[in-house]
Design a binder for these strands. Structure first.
Lengths: 350, 350
DNA sequence: CTGTTAGCGCGTTCAT
DNA sequence: ATGAACGCGCTAACAG
């Protein structure tokens, strides 16, 4: 911004005919000041529409009331719900938040941490699943470590392997396992999983938890039954289309999409193809984003306390951590709705 | 943040055995410096994990690379889509954005502008419908005017009566009118409108546009056919419930919810009550948030270019405005889908 | 209770 | 090409 003729504290002080210090004191309520001076300063400030320079305040050792939030994609309901939780407690604590949207670009994520560090944000909250990538972790750590060394707080939602940060951990594994169990209990024996990029820890955890539970029940899940696609609605749509290309007898009776958004895409694909859900195929998602209960059929999913995820993360970031990174685990709960049912033609074991 | 022992430019300079000025020059590429010095500074900086103090930079007259965005509610798909657009172009211009969530509290909105002003944000983008409220407008103007006087850029999405700011204006009125026309064309003669708080300009524009077009076709819309409720999914649900309390013959054949989210709530209420859509009642929304095409029945709505709304607003905020506030109008387009159909039992005029 | 003054970390003239 | 010094706007010691 091409610094216009900003009104400064000095202007206010002069206009009120008091010293700089006095003006500062009344504006900040730091110390008591004679009433008449107080009034003069206040009216001068409002007269001049004075706005303190936060940069100068910060520099002079005043407080930083700003925290940073790094989010994969605000327009994804999952992330925006979590971000909402973060903002709620930030708001409650009188904090300003700088919300960065990385558009799912790992590099941009690192760049933003750097920028937030420059801003001297008092805390940084990382929202979104981490990338399983050595060099990325190294780059991230190179920013985060010095930041924390000078007192910066960091908290993350989801598992970040290499980073030793406070984290709020939804039970991806357990939730997926519980879902698998419920689905097997319904009688399904032939599954497909619509998975996102394997480098995302969230994807791995969910797929693994699901697969292991299936295995525990003696239900196979071959590699070709796990379709990797993009981590969004269109990914789910596309993967479901692929499934539909298979001959009917080789199709699964139940499809687990690792996120609700992907499940929504899958539902759309099935509807277009005239494949009835849950008549011909059951569909389940994960997250329980607000809209899925209003779908037809309402989506079976694993419910995560989305807002809480954000709230707890901000909580962690607000109270200085002691020695080791803390972990807050939040439960996941299977919500059976209409998109899943007993399979029509139960598969016999081969 | 309790200022830890931050690494400063001076530290880097000393460690590299050069002057402060030299260190500054290489780090900013401001001027050419001898290669060996350059290298020494660079490695010292990286060795010490130096992060420039953005506050000091800003204060010293350097550039501000941060803009502010004020958003009603990030977890509402409409706002998050628009916010996504804003972030996209901010990102593209190397800007850091401070995203504030007001949780639909008008006062908080003013408070945030004040904070952003203190941060010397180079631009402020207002996302969300304005409040038709004299004293609110006054308070807002009291912050905005001085801000712009010193070169601050302001842009808003939606109509803000009292504020003379650059604005991106979706065609709420025209879109609603076009929708009304289409619905009348389908044969509907008895409508209900699920409206949000009348103080929101967006609500007014949509309701008025709809009502006027109906009137133009000789279709009445009495006051009791416009149900005021909250501006969210639950509001739509609740209002639809109220509709269902009426005796069947007094029910509308078509319901227009002023936002898609409200329409989703209404759809849920009808489904619960066993009222078929569009069999017994047609439902239409407004906005075309991503998920509505995936509903069953897919929702008829008025499509707004949500991301573009944000993009254009950021564009406006980035290029200094000349004299008078500019207005960018963006069209709205009716998208007929399955949630609307010809009424089963066309009403005869009384 | 009030005013004066010394930095906070950095960009930027000025000399050199 | 490099270095010394000033000032951005403000808070927090220190005097008075």
């Amino acid at each position: 911004m091409k610094s216009g003729p900003h009104v400064t504290l000095a202007d206010v002080a002069q206009s009120a005919d008091v010293s700089l210090a006095t003006a500062s004191r009344v504006l900040n309520g730091t110390a008591s000041v004679r009433t008449d001076l107080r009034d003069r300063v206040m009216s001068a400030a409002s007269e001049l529409a004075y706005a303190p320079n936060a940069h100068a305040q910060a520099l002079a050792g005043g407080t930083h009331r700003t925290v940073g939030v790094i989010c994969h994609d605000v327009s994804d309901p999952y992330f925006s719900a979590v971000a909402g939780g973060v903002m709620k407690v930030a708001n409650g604590n009188g904090l300003l938040v700088m919300l960065a949207d990385t558009f799912r670009d790992p590099d941009r994520e690192v760049a933003y941490v750097s920028a937030l560090r420059a801003q001297r944000a008092s805390a940084i909250v990382l929202i979104g699943s981490a990338f399983e990538d050595r060099s990325w972790e190294r780059a991230m750590a190179a920013e985060l470590d010095p930041y924390r060394r000078v007192g910066g707080q960091v908290a993350a939602v989801s598992r970040h392997r290499g980073l030793k940060v406070d984290t709020v951990l939804p039970d991806n594994r357990g939730g997926a396992a519980a879902l698998a169990k419920a689905l097997v209990g319904l009688g399904h024996k032939r599954f497909a999983v619509l998975a996102g990029p394997a480098r995302l820890t969230t994807v791995c955890d969910r797929v693994d938890g699901f697969a292991e539970e299936l295995a525990a029940h003696g239900v196979p899940l071959s590699d070709e039954d796990v379709l990797e696609t993009t981590f969004d609605r269109d990914g789910g749509y596309e993967a479901a289309k692929r499934l539909l290309e298979r001959p009917k007898r080789r199709r699964p009776t139940c499809v687990f999409a690792v996120t609700d958004l992907m499940a929504i895409g899958a539902l759309a694909a099935f509807r277009e193809a005239g494949v009835s859900v849950p008549g011909e195929v059951s569909v389940a998602g994960f997250d329980n984003i607000p809209v899925v209960r209003d779908l037809t059929p309402a989506l079976t999913t694993v419910a995560l306390p989305l807002e809480q995820l954000g709230e707890r993360a901000m909580d962690l970031a607000l109270k200085a951590s002691g020695t080791r990174p803390r972990t807050v685990r939040l439960g996941a709960e299977v919500v059976l709705r209409e998109s899943t049912a007993r399979p029509k033609r139960p598969h016999r074991p081969l």
